[in-house]
């Protein structure tokens, strides 16, 4: 279980999160919604340790993450697919994928995870030995998500995975992730611009507005709230 309590984050004078709290249950998908600049990316960057908060706490199964550096947080089984360019363009597709699970050291499982990823994303399989630099935007996004899955994480932070992806690829990815949630108990925090489709896959959701949580609850319930949809979700 991931618990975020009273998280306040500022970049210099700009406060991006004002005392945000949320709880993500194990083996569930929680959507984080909100307009541009709402603080969604800041939230996941803080969880994965890239940003130091001014106050508050982030706990994974009761363990405080706030003082840990990002690499140690990753080693607890938290995989973060960053918004936009998360691939290492200078390395090959294969190397990028291998990097996802290097900290695990169970070579065999790694090999299997790699093969699974190539099965899931056939375009990557054909470009195994090319540098990620040569990939298209959508292919890069596949690589980024695939690399996170290779790590077999407990908690997956997805920051706008739909960016640049064709609908079919996206449906495929989300289908795979749903399966991992039910089969392996994966926990997911999903950031999406498209509130409608995010709410359709998520179990729970929160809505951020200018760094504050303005709504939270079961995804279905939020999707049904007329006022909320109009004010923040735009559908």
């Amino acid at each position: 279980m991931l618990e975020v309590v009273d998280l306040t984050v500022a970049y210099g004078p700009v406060v991006a999160l004002h005392g945000v709290s949320l709880t993500v249950q194990d083996a569930s998908i929680t959507a984080v919604l909100g307009a541009n600049g709402a603080g969604k990316t800041t939230l996941v960057r803080t969880i994965s340790g890239l940003v130091r908060p001014r106050a508050g706490s982030v706990r994974l199964d009761g363990r405080e993450l706030i003082r840990l550096p990002p690499e140690e947080i990753a080693r607890l089984g938290i995989a973060h697919v960053p918004q936009g360019q998360g691939v290492l363009a200078e390395l090959t597709v294969d190397e990028n994928l291998r990097l996802g699970g290097l900290w695990r050291r169970d070579r065999k499982a790694q090999r299997g995870a790699l093969d699974e990823t190539y099965e899931l994303f056939p375009p990557l399989a054909g470009r195994r030995h090319l540098t990620a630099f040569s990939l298209s935007g959508g292919e890069r996004q596949m690589l980024s998500v695939g690399r996170a899955l290779v790590a077999r994480p407990r908690l997956l932070l997805l920051d706008e995975p739909s960016l640049g992806l064709a609908r079919r690829a996206l449906v495929q990815i989300m289908g795979r992730i749903k399966a991992l949630v039910t089969e392996r108990g994966l926990t997911v925090l999903l950031i999406e611009q498209n509130a409608k489709s995010a709410l359709s896959v998520a179990d729970d959701a929160i809505v951020l507005h200018l760094g504050n949580v303005v709504a939270h609850g079961p995804a279905q319930k939020l999707a049904d709230e007329e006022g909320l949809r109009h004010a923040y979700l735009g559908f």
Partner: peptide, 22 residues
């Protein structure tokens, strides 16, 4: 693998950290 980690760390420290590379 060590060399791969070293290259990744040099190319993009932030992303490398997210991948658990020290």
């Amino acid at each position: 693998d060590l060399g791969l980690r070293m290259r990744a760390a040099a190319f993009n420290p932030d992303v490398s950290r997210l991948l658990g590379i020290r």
